[in-house]
């Protein structure tokens, strides 16, 4: 007898592999999430509200959202040309550039954190130059943005690249034969199909940015009310064994991520539609 699921014969191994997968996912992912949900459900509404509206917490949340937003925007501005260059042009060193895009993902965040701090600190090369111009990066919100640009870069570039590669070049040629200028070709023919991927890359970078910890804590200086990010607030509360408070802040961050990532998912569904229209 062939193994079947609902009348479909299937390759062998379904029960075993799915069983292992479900068990592991339950223990490693669902159980921790359940613990978080249970803990947050045990908080009274008052307690929750008090915690997340404490000035130090709101300042941290505001700072995290703002810096993540700015960093994601910078990544979009530079990510489009970068993805374009990597998908369309060939030039010496391109493979190296392409490989480097994944560096922020592979490099441990703590290493990135101390490296960026060393660079942009008062004694580092770029830091010293900027310092003479009166611009301080390290230990200011600008430093947080720098770290988040580093962290978010691959999200934007790697989301855009496959879409640019799937664009039919003949479309651009057709537009050119119809009399469009290069700028018109870019804004009317190339950019519209990229918009969903851009938004998706932006959101992924943004969601990652609000949760980022390792690369930020070194460069931010961690001054309460000024350069203290939300994950650090959670960390501080944990060090004080204030698990309820930590959970409250964590829930706020998770809800924001959840909203952003759901938006991405929706956009991906629409992007699928867009892309088939493009090809």
């Amino acid at each position: 007898m062939a193994k079947e699921i609902k009348g479909r014969v299937v390759l062998p191994g379904f029960g075993m592999t799915l069983g292992v997968t479900l068990f592991y996912v339950s223990v490693m992912i669902l159980l921790p999430f359940a613990a978080l949900v249970l803990k947050s459900a045990s908080l009274s509404l008052h307690e929750f509200y008090e915690t997340v509206t404490a000035p130090r917490v709101t300042a941290a949340l505001r700072l995290s959202l703002l810096t993540a937003w700015i960093a994601a925007s910078i990544n979009v501005v530079f990510g489009v040309p970068a993805a374009w260059v990597l998908s369309r042009y060939s030039f010496p060193g391109k493979r190296l550039l392409d490989a480097m895009v994944d560096l922020p993902f592979a490099l441990p965040t703590a290493v990135a954190g101390i490296a960026l701090t060393a660079m942009f600190g008062p004694t580092g090369g770029p830091g010293a130059i900027l310092g003479r111009l009166g611009v301080k990066i390290a230990f200011t919100p600008a430093g947080i943005v720098v770290a988040l640009v580093f962290i978010g870069l691959p999200f934007v570039v790697r989301t855009l690249q496959p879409v640019i590669e799937s664009l039919d070049r003949r479309m651009e040629e057709a537009a050119a034969t119809l009399g469009a200028s290069p700028a018109q070709v870019f804004f009317r023919v190339i950019l519209p199909p990229l918009v969903p991927a851009l938004l998706s890359g932006f959101s992924l970078a943004f969601a990652r940015g609000i949760g980022e910890y390792g690369s930020v804590v070194f460069i931010s200086g961690n001054m309460p009310m000024r350069t203290e990010i939300a994950p650090l607030v959670i960390m501080t509360k944990l060090q004080q064994f204030d698990y309820a408070g930590a959970t409250a802040v964590a829930v706020v961050l998770l809800i924001v991520s959840f909203i952003v990532l759901s938006a991405v998912r929706l956009m991906e569904l629409r992007a699928g539609f867009w892309r088939t229209g493009v090809r």
Partner: peptide, 22 residues
Amino acid sequence: VIALPFSVSPVIAGLMFILVYG
């Protein structure tokens, strides 16, 4: 669900394990 750990702040991941095993 498998992709969830990507979208959780590492600090929150640690917190969740404290809430299970702490």
